[in-house]
Every structure is written in structure tokens, then in C-alpha cells.
Write a protein that binds this DNA or RNA. Structure first.
Lengths: 178, 178
DNA sequence: TTAACCATGTAAAAAGTTACATGATTGT
DNA sequence: ACAATCATGTAACTTTTTACATGGTTAA
């Protein structure tokens, strides 16, 4: 599923401007990529050219006019088609593993500092993730099922971060016994 | 930590050709990016220009000559410096969450099929990951500690995949009760 | 004879990041 | 005075993917 389909999802759910879209992307951290102007505004132009979204320009007194988009019938069709496609497996980018892989030249203290620093980083991420869950996330569901699904989406990141933290603690104990 | 440092890590550990490097990248799935010719051969040229690796060209009878590289003193310094840098938090790309996010237009059967398909995908990944752990992975450690560290690297992926699978099973149960 | 392995590289395109550019409003 | 929010976009750059290009060896 590519960026355009994600945008279509939002536009099907609610009429939005590029700016609002951007703020959803930055708040929702299961799309860490795709939060910048370049991608959003060019994708919007392309979607419009292809007739998958329609634009409504709302003039404002003192600010530049808003361009509010919503998905068209064809846009909804394309979205459903994309959603039904089989999903790819998660792909994880783990910088810490690269450091660990070549840590043989490090002293015990140096490697401990590295592990400590990374553990702190993950704990901070977990705290932020839980704070977001507590606040409930920016998206309100249209149905009971959608409400549930969005809560599970927020929990997904927590589950992975917790797994990472548990693994880290095992690593720390293992290293202490070497 | 960028690709060049990862390559330096390999070249410090062992003298290697670009081709061998490539096969390590494809076997080790904690670097899902960075397995293609373009990146590897251009990075190698750059590392050589900067004096971080040294090349030894070994002619072969019937195959093109091998170019075997190893890290230089300056290369090892740069590697250590990169390893000591603080590591970034994991970044997870989860296509399934995007499908789930916009699944409101799907029927119960359609969403079940989607979940089933993804579960199968993750189970296959887990099986492959465990098979790799059983075979021990391609890298032999230089020390007890390095041996341990590499086994933990292999376990990291298993831990995350298992967390994903557990989350999926919770999701499935939750959906059944809606 | 078809595919996989060995071995090197280059070209072109797609995806993603960072910075630039404008400019009013509101809060500290 | 400075930063943040609202609101649009473009330019330059880096990273990553896919395909092209060559050509011998080995095993099914």
C-alpha cells in the first residue's frame, strides 16, 4: 500500500486539507515516513489529476485559501482494492543491531554505555507511545469496529517496543555474565 | 550508522569481495535495505578512495578477477567511532496497519481473510527466522562475547515477530467479539 | 536447456529528507 | 523579540529499488 492509498483513506474518512493531513501523519507514528510537504502536496496534485479526490477551495480572510479534498467514487474503489491486497510482512530497521554487530572492539564499559543509552531511548519511545494511547489518538472511528481497530493500531507499536525492551534486558543480563 | 560503516565492520572482521558482502547482506535480515549491487560497489569504490579499505586483486583462471577488501587502520578508527555513536530507536514499517486502518468498508469475511493472510505471512517469516537461528547464521564470532552478541542479533527478529503474532491473535479475538 | 552461482559494475527511476520561500496570527 | 500555528508549495539532495550489461561454470 502506497502513500496515495493512505491519503485516500483519510480523504474517504473526512474532508481534509494538505496541512491537516500532514499533522495526522506526524501524530500517527506508524507512518514514520511520508510526513513532509513535498510528498503530500505532490501526491494531492496527482490524486486530483487522476480524479480520485475532488477539491473545494475555501477562501479565508487573512490566511491563504484552504484546499479541502475528499475521495471521489473512483477514489473509494481504488482504496478498497488497495486494502484488499495482501499485506507485506513488517520490516524493521534496527540501528542498534548494527552497532552491536561490530562492538567486538569495545571495552566492557563502552558496550555498557551503548546498551544503557539505547535502553533509555526505547523507554522514552514507550512512554511517548503510552501517552498517545492515553490521549486516545487523533482519529475517531465511524463504527464500533473501526474504533476498536484504531485502538489496536496504537497498541501495535507499544507491543513491539515492549518486545524490544525485553530483548534488551535479556541482552544486558547475558553480557553481564560474559 | 550508515552502509559504509556496516561494510567497514565486515571488512574489519574478514577480508571480503563485494560479492561475498552481498550474500551476507541478503542472508542477514536485519539489513533489509542495502543488499543490491549499486549500493555495494559504489560504497566500495568510495571507501577505497577515502583510504578506509585496501584492495587486493586476485586473478582467477576462468572467472573475472576477485577484488578482496579489508579495513585499513583509518577504517577501523572510523568504524569504532561510528559504533560508539548513540543508536537510533527502531523504526518499523507495517503495511498491515495501513490496510487495517482503512478496513471499515470491508465485510466481516473480507477482514477475516486479510487477517488470516497476514498471520500466515508472519508465521512463514517466523519459521524462516527460526531455521536461520538453528543453522546458526553465517557469521562466526572472534570472541565469546561476539559469539553471544551475534546469537542475540538473530533472536531480536524472532522476538519482534513473536510480538507481532501475539498482537495479531489478540486482534483476531477482539474482532470476533464485535 | 534452464536455472543458480560466481563476479563485476552502470543507469535510470522511485522514494524519502531537508531546506527554501512566503506571510499573517497568536501566545510567551 | 521569538516561537508556534496556519497554509501553501518548490528545489535540491540523498537513499533505495529495479533493471541493464557481460560472461563463464556447474548441477538438475
Amino acid at each position: 500500500m502506497e502513500l496515495q492509498d493512505v491519503i485516500l483513506g483519510f480523504m474517504d474518512w473526512k474532508q481534509l486539507t494538505g496541512y491537516e493531513l500532514k499533522s495526522f501523519f506526524s501524530e500517527l507514528d506508524f507512518l514514520p515516513w511520508a510526513g513532509n510537504n513535498n510528498q503530500i502536496y505532490t501526491a494531492l496534485l496527482k490524486l486530483e489529476r487522476e480524479g480520485l479526490v475532488e477539491k473545494e477551495t475555501v477562501p479565508q480572510e487573512k490566511l491563504p485559501p484552504q484546499k479541502r479534498y475528499r475521495a471521489t467514487g473512483r477514489g473509494k474503489e481504488r482504496l478498497k482494492c488497495a486494502v484488499l491486497q495482501p499485506a507485506e510482512a513488517i520490516s524493521v530497521r534496527n540501528d542498534f543491531l548494527l552497532h552491536l554487530a561490530w562492538s567486538d572492539g569495545l571495552s566492557t564499559e563502552e558496550i555498557e554505555r551503548l546498551v544503557d543509552g539505547y535502553q533509555k531511548t526505547i523507554e522514552v519511545e514507550l512512554a511517548m507511545c503510552r501517552e498517545k494511547m492515553r490521549r486516545g489518538g487523533p482519529v475517531r472511528g465511524r463504527s464500533r469496529r473501526e474504533e476498536y481497530v484504531w485502538s489496536m493500531i496504537l497498541q501495535n507499536r507499544e507491543a513491539l517496543l515492549r518486545a524490544e525492551l525485553n530483548w534488551l534486558i535479556r541482552l544486558r543480563n547475558g553480557l553481564a555474565n560474559k
